[in-house]
C-alpha cells in the first residue's frame, strides 16, 4: 500500500495545484443533470426513475472524462514508466490510480446529489445509508474497470475514442444495477429489499472486476 498511497498523495498534490480535473468533471456532471432536467422535467414532475438514471449517466460520463485526464498527466512526460519501475508489485500502481479516481468520483457525486434532489425532487435523504452503499459499490465497479482501461490505452493514439467504446459495454451491468438500486430507494416509499438485492449484485461485480483488474494489470501494462 506504500506505493498506492504515494501515488494518491502525488495525484492529490497535482490536482490541488491545478484543480483542472475536479472543476471540469464536476462542471460536466452538473451540465449533464441540467440538460436532462430541462428535457425530462415538466411542471415540476419528472419521469419515474429519471433521477436515478440521470445520476448514474452523469457519474459515468464525468468519470470517463476524469479517467482520460488523470492518465494524460502520466503520459505527458512518460511518468507511467517511472511508476512501473518502482520496486513494488505493479498492481500497486493500479491501486493508487484507482483510489484517486474513487476520491474524484466521490467529490462529483457529492456535488450531484443536491442537484438531483433539487431538479428531480428526489428524496435523497429517505435512505441515506442505502444510497451511499449503492453509490460506493457502483463507483468502485465503474472505476476499477475504467482505471485498468485508461492505463492500458495511455500510449494508444486514439485513446480518447477507445476508452468509452471499451468501457461502457463492460460496465453496463454496473450502471444498470446502480440505476435499478437507486431507483428503488428514490421512490416515494423506498424499497429497501430491492436496493439490497442490487447492492449485493454490485458487490459481486466489484469483487470480479477488481480481482480481474489486479490480475491483468501487470501483463497488460508490460510493453509488448
Amino acid at each position: 500500500m506504500r506505493v498506492a498511497w504515494a501515488i494518491l498523495r502525488k495525484d492529490a498534490a497535482v490536482e490541488m495545484r491545478s484543480r483542472e480535473i475536479v472543476y471540469t468533471t464536476v462542471f460536466f456532471a452538473a451540465s449533464c443533470v441540467l440538460v436532462f432536467a430541462f428535457a425530462l422535467v415538466r411542471e415540476g414532475r419528472a419521469m419515474p426513475d429519471a433521477a436515478a438514471a440521470i445520476l448514474w449517466i452523469a457519474v459515468a460520463f464525468s468519470g470517463t472524462l476524469g479517467l482520460g485526464r488523470t492518465f494524460e498527466r502520466e503520459r505527458y512526460t512518460d511518468t507511467l514508466r517511472a511508476l512501473m519501475l518502482a520496486p513494488s508489485d505493479r498492481p500497486a500502481v493500479y491501486v493508487g490510480k484507482l483510489l484517486g479516481m474513487l476520491v474524484l468520483l466521490a467529490i462529483v457525486e457529492a456535488a450531484l446529489l443536491p442537484l438531483i434532489a433539487l431538479f428531480f425532487a428526489a428524496p435523497i435523504t429517505a435512505s441515506p445509508l442505502w444510497l451511499a452503499a449503492l453509490l460506493a459499490a457502483g463507483t468502485l465497479g465503474f472505476a476499477s474497470v475504467g482505471t485498468l482501461f485508461a492505463a492500458m490505452l495511455v500510449r494508444a493514439r486514439s485513446r480518447d475514442v477507445l476508452l468509452p467504446v471499451l468501457l461502457y459495454p463492460i460496465t453496463i451491468p454496473v450502471i444498470i444495477a446502480g440505476v435499478r438500486g437507486t431507483a428503488a430507494i428514490l421512490q416515494p416509499v423506498p424499497d429497501e429489499a430491492m436496493a439490497r438485492f442490487w447492492a449485493a449484485l454490485l458487490v459481486f461485480f466489484d469483487v470480479v472486476f477488481v480481482t480481474l483488474s489486479l490480475w491483468t494489470f501487470e501483463p497488460l501494462m508490460t510493453e509488448q
Binding site: 506505493v3 498534490a13 512526460t77 520496486p87
Partner: peptide, 26 residues
C-alpha cells in the same frame, strides 16, 4: 533510469517530485 523523457511531474515543485520518488522507493 534517466530516459529521453525525464519522468518528472511539471505541476509539482522540484522538492515534491523528489519526495514523491523517495516515497515510491520507501
Amino acid at each position: 533510469l534517466l530516459g529521453h523523457d525525464l519522468y518528472l511531474y511539471p505541476d509539482l515543485t522540484a522538492r515534491e517530485n523528489l519526495a514523491f520518488f523517495a516515497r515510491l522507493y520507501g
